[in-house]
Design a protein around this nucleic acid. Structure first.
Length: 851
RNA sequence: GCCGGGGUGGCGGAACAGGCAGACGCAGCGGACUUAAAAUCCGCUGAGGGUAAACCUCGUGGGGGUUCGAUUCCCUUCCCCGGCACCA
């Protein structure tokens, strides 16, 4: 018998799969389809163990489904545009393109070495002109649909990356990549009107039954729907202010108004030059700090009385108008009515500036409030003629009054804002628009796509302008409408645009006449299993859903949601080290004393997700060289439940390696056709034991794969099967050949999605000619998953005291009788009166006594 | 603050339509093989008591409840992780 030579076995089968085109699929198949997709990687150098886990999860499903008879589409590609390529290129004095494509070459090699069952013919990078041609087409499509527009806007700008960021890319006031504090700048930018789909994006979440609840909740919170009212407050001396409130019922308590610093009225309202000056200072200060300091618990509320008043439309009182830093311009109308008695923020502000506080809502049966502010609902006081009404009733009555007086109405507001698409960076898909002095803004003709990214260019970021503007060749063009001279748009698209439709292209990557062939898409899409990290729970998934809906409305797609089933896997963690001056230090450079190798400062250690930037990555090769890639694949699945994160510990890997070696030894001891007999009927107790463990395991593994990626317990079950099987065989009893054959072959097939190389090799050793990739997945028989004779525990007053060995099917009365005759039971019940016996068939006998 | 997810041996984790807590694996201990080590194989391994047996007691973050029976259900409380966060 050969030993388990994983090196040769693995390269042998990888070669066979490639030569035989085992994983290539076509849409023209009579079989039902299954589209398994892992979120495609950013090609930044190397694939690490975190990626390995992600792709192995998908690969197990893909291989399993293939054996279930599905026509499995399992593609991979590269999310290749973006900042890291530029940064790395600058650092290494090379071109982003070279750096990116070198990475891709390397990563592909790694993927193949892991044995991932991809159809590599379908592979592409989003930076391929053949791909971004269609990303540009998508932009033009959105433009024609009225879903792309230009706006002069205050934008989030990262001074470090020197680019504009989408709202979604600002985390706690910092850049999502480098954490630099974001500042506000005014720029003319392209936006995508995701807001046109707000309601659909929200309500269709309900249809996503196979998405994790927490991801749906995050999207819901992000969309942030709230019901409220819009109310117009007339300004004393002319004009008006429109506010939004979710608590119309508290309007009698509105003792002042607050507008945000960015609000146009903040400079228009003041008469007094001194106030105007002070307001300007406040505006500048708040522009700089507002979005920046968000991470801090709370910035102190600061405001200025503008010297003007408005009428409260309900009380007809004159109330002062303030500008203050705590009101957001982007939400609602950028102005609020302040009700200090019923809102903490307004309350704090009122205390600071000594403003009146009037209670107008009290919880039932109370006439005044003990503690202010009271933010709950209740019954109205001090609000004639609405006194005594519930908050709900009052809101309706008040809104009727507003509509009658044309001063407002009930309305709905969302937090979701339009998607800022423009980036002033080089390494991205150029926005295919042209500026003509005669015709204005003109889209590039479809047949002129792609607008190619110039390669001979200084791509260093230069702040508010894209590096593309330095290329005369790129910049100057002719107007598609009038033929006159014109300039190109020089901004590139946010890379999230590239990744918002790639899953469609995988279904139809070969056409160069259209973004995708509808017939192919109709067959393969939507994605059945989409697997990736939670970090994409909002951005990528929301954008992809938006694009799918927009394309659907344009007649290009017949489905509403791109991903039927989403699985968010937990990341692989590893210790990382941080130095104040030298940032992340790779663990391999950290000496015993845990001091920085550059400046000898003490390092801060933390457990983080593996990432290149933190230097704490572990390469899959670390494992595959020593144990083989099958061991590595199986370990990342076995270490913890797939959705949970786990800390990388190399010493734990050996358990899996031992297991695979034991499987090898057992299975390879039946070479060739030594097991020919196909009659699997059991003929003795050992046969029955083998049959039992076989079918129990088939059931468990099948259900664990089907039931939400429970691969850790599936592998545990396989280990148990091996242990049991070995124990029975070692008893040196006679096991009927057919029974043994079924057991051994089932074991190999059940292991194959997890450890495909060893499984293929063993399958061949067992005498089979073809790859087991399309071998039928074993099916369990229900009558073989349960023992005929079982042990039933007897519990007396809540404690297990004895056990009975009985046939599984037995009458309850008989069980009671046996239990009461049991020696140990008699001992424990002696001198006590038995109050009752409860028999739970096949589970337990519970006796309780009088005490 | 709001929303979501968790607290089980030395460690990763099993079990939960309420029914033998700790499957499977790591680490550890003991033994076999070996000149020796590695590898492999066998056994033990929640805590405490008990003679290394039988057996007993306690144990799933804390407190209380429902039940013949609770890691699982209910109430209450503490702690950890993730998301959002001055959203009116």
């Amino acid at each position: 018998m050969k030993h388990y030579d994983f090196h040769n076995i693995e390269s042998k089968w990888q070669k066979i799969w490639e030569e035989q085109k085992t994983f290539e699929v076509e849409a023209s198949s009579g079989k039902p389809k299954c589209y398994v997709l892992e979120m495609f990687p950013y090609p930044s150098g190397y694939l690490h163990i975190g990626h390995l886990k992600n792709y192995t999860l998908g690969d197990v499903v893909a291989r399993y489904k293939r054996m279930q008879g599905y026509n499995v589409l399992h593609p991979i590609g590269f999310d290749a545009f973006g900042l890291p390529a530029e940064n790395a290129a600058i650092k290494q004095k090379t071109h982003p393109k070279k750096w990116t494509y070198d990475s891709i070459t390397h990563i592909k090699k790694q993927m193949k070495a892991v044995g991932l069952s991809y159809d590599f013919r379908r592979e592409f990078a989003t930076s391929d002109p053949e791909y971004y041609k269609w990303t540009q087409w998508l932009f033009l499509f959105l433009y024609k649909q009225g879903l792309a527009y230009q706006k002069e806007a205050l934008v989030n700008f990262c001074p470090h990356c020197r680019t504009v960021l989408a709202n979604e890319q600002v985390i706690a006031g910092g850049c999502w990549r480098c954490e630099t504090k974001v500042v506000k700048n005014s720029l003319k930018q392209w936006f995508l009107k995701i807001s046109a789909y707000t309601e659909e994006l929200l309500s269709d979440l309900e249809t996503l039954n196979e998405w994790p609840e927490h991801v749906k909740t995050m999207q819901k919170n992000w969309i942030g729907k709230s019901y409220g009212a819009q109310v117009t407050f007339p300004i004393v001396g002319g004009g008006e202010i429109e506010i939004f409130t979710t608590r119309l019922d508290t309007i009698y308590g509105a003792t002042f108004l607050v507008i945000s610093p960015e609000h146009p009225l903040s400079l228009e309202l003041p008469y007094d030059p001194g106030i105007k000056e002070a307001t300007k200072i406040l505006i500048n200060k708040s522009l700089l700090t507002q979005e920046i300091e968000r991470s801090a618990e709370e910035i102190p509320k600061e405001g200025i009385f503008l010297g003007r008043y408005a009428y409260n439309p309900f009380t007809c009182e004159k109330i002062p108008i303030f500008v203050a830093n705590y009101v957001l311009y982007e939400y609602g109308t950028g102005a609020i009515m302040a009700v200090p008695a019923h809102d903490t923020r307004d309350y704090d502000f009122a205390l600071k500036y000594n403003l009146p506080i009037r209670e107008v809502v009290v919880p039932e049966a109370l006439t005044h409030l003990e503690n202010l502010p009271y933010e709950g609902y209740g019954y109205l006081i001090n609000s004639e003629p609405y006194n005594g009404l519930s908050s709900e009733e009052a809101t309706i009555k008040m809104s009727e009054f507003l509509q009658e007086k044309l001063l407002g109405k009930l309305t709905i507001r969302y937090k979701l804002r339009d998607w800022l698409l423009s980036r002033q960076r080089y390494w991205g898909a150029p926005i295919p628009m042209i500026y003509c002095d005669q015709c204005g803004v003109v889209p590039v003709n479809e047949e002129d796509l792609p607008v190619k990214l110039p390669e001979e260019i200084d791509f260093t970021p230069r702040g508010m302008v894209s590096p593309l503007s330095t290329s005369d060749e790129f910049l100057h063009t002719t107007c598609p409408q009038c033929g006159g001279s014109a300039r190109r748009e020089t901004d590139t698209m946010d890379t999230f645009m590239c990744s918002s439709w790639y899953y469609l292209r995988f279904g139809s990557p070969f056409t160069n006449r259209e973004p995708f062939n509808k017939k192919d898409i109709d067959y393969f899409l939507p994605v059945d299993y989409y697997i990736g990290g939670v970090e994409h729970a909002i951005l990528h998934l929301l954008y992809s859903r938006f694009i799918t809906k927009a394309l659907g409305d344009g007649g290009y797609l017949d489905f509403k949601e791109p991903f039927s089933r989403l699985f968010t896997q937990g990341m692989v963690l590893h210790t990382s080290y941080w130095c104040q001056t030298h940032y992340w230090i790779a663990p391999k450079n950290v000496k015993e004393n845990k001091h920085c190798p550059h400046c000898d400062a003490e390092l801060i250690a933390s457990l983080d997700a593996m990432s290149k930037s933190k230097g704490n990555i572990v390469l899959p090769e670390t494992i595959s060289h020593k144990y083989g890639t099958d061991t590595g694949r199986m370990y990342v699945l076995f270490a913890a439940p797939a959705e949970r994160e786990f800390e990388w510990k190399e010493e734990s890997v050996s358990g899996i390696f031992r297991f695979l070696n034991r499987v090898w030894k057992l299975v390879a001891s039946y070479p060739g056709l030594s097991l020919k007999e196909t009659d699997g009927r059991p003929q003795n107790p050992d046969d029955e034991a083998v049959k039992l463990i076989t079918h129990k395991t088939i059931k468990k593994v099948t259900q664990d794969i089907e039931n939400n990626f429970r691969f850790n317990t599936a592998i545990a079950a396989l280990m148990e099967m091996l242990n049991d099987l070995k124990a029975i065989i070692e008893r040196e009893n006679f096991i009927t050949e057919g029974v043994l054959k079924e057991a051994i072959e089932s074991l190999v097939l059940l292991i194959s999605p997890f450890a495909p190389h060893i499984a293929e090799e063993l399958w061949e050793i067992l005498g089979h000619q073809n790859s087991l990739s399309f071998q039928k997945w074993p099916v369990y028989e229900e009558n073989w998953v349960k023992e005929e004779v079982i042990e039933i525990p007897i519990q007396i007053d809540g404690k297990i005291r004895s056990k009975l060995t009985v046939p599984r099917i037995i009458e309850e009365e008989k069980l009671k009788e046996l239990a009461l005759q049991d020696e140990k039971v008699l001992k424990f019940v002696e001198g006590k009166k038995v109050k009752g016996i409860i028999v739970v068939p096949e589970k337990i006998i519970s006796i309780h006594t009088e005490t």
